[in-house]
Amino acid sequence: MLLSSTEQHELLLVDDEADTLLELTEILELEGYCCHTATSVRKALEQLTHHPYIGLVITDLQMPEESGVKLIQHLRAHCSRQHLPIIVTSYHNAADEVVDVLGLNVIDFFQKPIYHNRLLEILNRLLPAMPVKAVRL
């Protein structure tokens, strides 16, 4: 019996709010993405080490220990991850904050709550559909 299955794009979602991570993970996994999550910059870096095929990061800007900016700066300084696409989210929308973040070569800035349709449009544009493989059962 042949079933059709697709490989999944791997995403890393970083936010200190567990409810936000859960909601975004559910939405993106329903769309076929494989989501890894982290609640801090330290945990995000661990996830990136354990999952080398992560192709995009969505990170909150305001987190208690270290900000999303620190994560972005670390990734931009790391040779193998310097071109990793990053989308930033935040409840705050101060103009200087947005300019600073966009200066770090991020894909987009989303004010929370996230407009999911717009996010999915961007992800579909950045991460084209994976080829379909036949799997024998």
Rank of each mutant, 00 (worst) to 15 (best):
Met1Lys: 07
Leu2Pro: 15
Ser4Asp: 13
Ser5Tyr: 12
Ser5Val: 14
Ser5Thr: 12
Thr6Asn: 15
Thr6His: 13
Glu7Pro: 02
His9Ala: 14
Glu10Met: 08
Glu10Lys: 13
Glu10Ser: 14
Leu12Glu: 03
Leu12Gly: 06
Leu13Gly: 04
Val14Pro: 00
Val14Gly: 10
Glu17Asp: 05
Ala18Asn: 09
Asp19Trp: 09
Asp19His: 14
Thr20Asn: 15
Leu21Ile: 08
Leu22Tyr: 08
Leu28Thr: 10
Glu29Ala: 03
Leu30Trp: 09
Gly32Thr: 07
Gly32His: 10
Cys34Asn: 09
His36Glu: 10
His36Asp: 08
Thr37Glu: 13
Ala38Gly: 01
Ala38Glu: 10
Ala38Cys: 06
Ala38Pro: 05
Thr39Ile: 03
Ser40Trp: 09
Arg42Cys: 09
Arg42Glu: 14
Ala44Trp: 06
Leu45Tyr: 09
Leu45Ile: 11
Glu46Cys: 08
His51Gly: 11
Pro52Glu: 15
Ile54Ser: 11
Gly55Asp: 10
Val57Trp: 08
Val57Ser: 05
Ile58Pro: 03
Asp60Thr: 09
Leu61Gly: 00
Leu61Ser: 03
Gln62Cys: 04
Met63Ala: 05
Met63Lys: 05
Pro64Ser: 04
Glu65Thr: 01
Glu66Thr: 00
Gly68Leu: 07
Lys70Asn: 11
Lys70Phe: 11
Leu71Lys: 01
Leu71Ile: 08
Gln73Ile: 02
Leu75Phe: 09
Ala77Phe: 04
Ser80Met: 04
Ser80His: 04
His83Lys: 09
Leu84Asn: 05
Leu84Arg: 01
Leu84Lys: 00
Ile86Asp: 05
Tyr91Thr: 00
Ala94Leu: 02
Ala95Phe: 05
Glu97Arg: 02
Asp100Cys: 04
Val101Asn: 00
Val101Pro: 05
Gly103Thr: 07
Leu104Lys: 12
Asn105His: 13
Ile107Leu: 10
Asp108Tyr: 08
Phe109Asn: 03
Phe110Pro: 00
Gln111Leu: 01
Asn117Phe: 06
Arg118Asp: 09
Leu119Glu: 04
Glu121Pro: 00
Leu123Ile: 09
Arg125Gln: 15
Pro131Asp: 12
Val132Phe: 05
Val132Pro: 00
Lys133Met: 13
Arg136Met: 15
Leu137Cys: 11
Leu137Pro: 11
